[in-house]
Design a protein around this nucleic acid. Sequence first.
DNA 1: CGCAAATTTGAAAGGAGTCAATTCGCGTGG
DNA 2: CCACGCGAATTGACTCCTTTCAAATTTGCG
Lengths: 266, 266
Amino acid sequence: MDKARSRDADQLSLGGPSVTGRLLWASSGANTVQLLTDEDRALLAPIGSAIQLKEGAKIFRQGDDAAAVFNVIHGVVKVYRTLPDGTERIMSFMFPGDLLGLPEEGKYVLSARAVTAVTVYRFLVPALESLLRANAALEFRLLSKVCHELHEVGRHSVIVARRPGLAKIALFLQMLESHQPAGGGTDEVYIPMSRSDIADYVAMSSEAVSRTFRALADLGVIGFRDKRHATIIDRARLETIAAQDRKCAKARSDQEMGDRSGLAST
Amino acid sequence: MDKARSRDADQLSLGGPSVTGRLLWASSGANTVQLLTDEDRALLAPIGSAIQLKEGAKIFRQGDDAAAVFNVIHGVVKVYRTLPDGTERIMSFMFPGDLLGLPEEGKYVLSARAVTAVTVYRFLVPALESLLRANAALEFRLLSKVCHELHEVGRHSVIVARRPGLAKIALFLQMLESHQPAGGGTDEVYIPMSRSDIADYVAMSSEAVSRTFRALADLGVIGFRDKRHATIIDRARLETIAAQDRKCAKARSDQEMGDRSGLAST
DNA sequence: CGCAAATTTGAAAGGAGTCAATTCGCGTGG
DNA sequence: CCACGCGAATTGACTCCTTTCAAATTTGCG
């Protein structure tokens, strides 16, 4: 809770739009940085409006006319595609500093819904477009953001492609941790979304998600304070697990087999 | 072969850079359109250089300093990530009109290699950057392209997430067909990449790819003129197969069970 | 013509999905 | 304040599909 509050402070103290990511051509050292300059924010703030949404609120739906683009300031949003099948596949979770609602031919490509209580900035398309056309430098920073998002989606598809459930969940936890805003104090990861949302994100059944969390806990790699708070106990092992795509890690895990016979290798 | 030649004509007749995709906010009707204006091409051509590459040639490698961005004019390129595991996961195939090599903090995020003989335009970063900073309208069209690519990657991750191999391959074929340039004359799809490339793209073993192609052929959905030329025989059925994520299609396929007992539902 | 790589086929085993039952968490109402 | 009840989450048992390993066949090229 304390951590959550300090995160809010980090983001809200900016008092306006916030877009984080990585620059295209300059190296910043940090994991992600604020891409907008103070001037950018001064230009964006007046053409956008801050909106508060309750958990579960729909933001837009795939196929709708795209009237606005959104910028997450606080909370977590899921962006998903509804399959002909009826099920939904979550393409990405959006955290503070992310941009969502980029359309194609004026229509939203995906649906979006608040996973937690959320604050977003909404930018109407016409205003945003004219701002971009007049300001190539700002537009370039947004281009950087979209490229970064493109690469993030690529990382997601690596998660989805992994066969072993352990590796999927391990990667998912690493992804979550990389979005934990508080300054690296703890090894605890807050999990804002439901098990079924996780399942739709990593492409497994929700039962398998449960089992896998349990398996990681039994292995002593992570621990659970409660269902939504996991602690990373053995970071090195988590990385090993995340790295294995097939069954290759046998050689490695054999060393540890002695004390943890149960679920690792069977 | 004739078709391949006419495609070349389509692209090369433009005599310069070509970026195809969908506009962000205007609807064009067509599947994809040329995003660059004649003026754009006139500006881009002098700062880029056309390069011919043989099949299998490396274009860049993940982690390298990103000196240039590339634009595919002719042929097919695979863009892939090498996993710690050593295996490679193909993130996307790039066709004429695509852009590749967008870096993050000055480094390439992925590796790229020519799948067929290829012609690409190479743009050095400094020149491209100054052109963009001076021309917001051109930059906006490139932004549209990157957004379109973002959405394409999303579609790919839907393929990867499908459990049944039949659905993966069906979606893959549809994707391939959507990139066949000749004007919809035939139902034949040219498959430019190897089976193992397909496997790395859809996240299955190459053996499973083989078996699945065979299964589709046995079902009478597709036919093979040779290993690289497939014909779509029953388009409706292909779509049905592509749509099924779990085992739901039972109801549908039961109707057809009579004549095609083998591999559909078992 | 012959070798090497790619592709296909076969048989066996493991993991994840499905279905079904149980427990847990939490808001509601008595 | 406690009991109830609904949904989410977990657990268990079983089946099926994909992977894996191994071998045969084809393809392409020197």
